[in-house]
């Protein structure tokens, strides 16, 4: 994947990248709203070239789950 995962997520969620971790989720992050969720998908698809199915995306509950989706689609990434 082009660029680093945490750079991409912290840019959209507007939280410092060194505060990024697997537990970041809509429940503990006010900026993770439905709109930014869409923005993350668009940016991740663009950076990775993959196209994620909706069912995989609906299963995402936190940053850790995003990594699982990337693994499932065999997207190589750095944090």
């Amino acid at each position: 994947m082009k660029g680093k995962l945490y750079d991409l997520l912290s840019k959209i969620l507007e939280i410092p990248r060194d505060e990024m971790n697997d537990e970041i989720s809509p429940a503990n992050t006010s900026t993770w709203d439905s709109f930014n969720a869409v923005m993350m998908i668009v940016e991740l698809e663009k950076a990775s070239g993959a196209r994620f199915d909706m069912s995989d995306l609906m299963a995402v509950k936190n940053v850790g789950d995003i990594k699982k989706v990337l693994d499932k689609y065999k997207v190589k990434y750095d944090c």
Binding site: S34, V38, E45, M54, M58
Partner: peptide, 14 residues
């Protein structure tokens, strides 16, 4: 596309 079913966006944000 999927964005319509996820977020009611007929036109994909892309």
């Amino acid at each position: 596309d999927k964005y319509y079913f996820m977020a009611d966006m007929k036109l994909s944000p892309e």
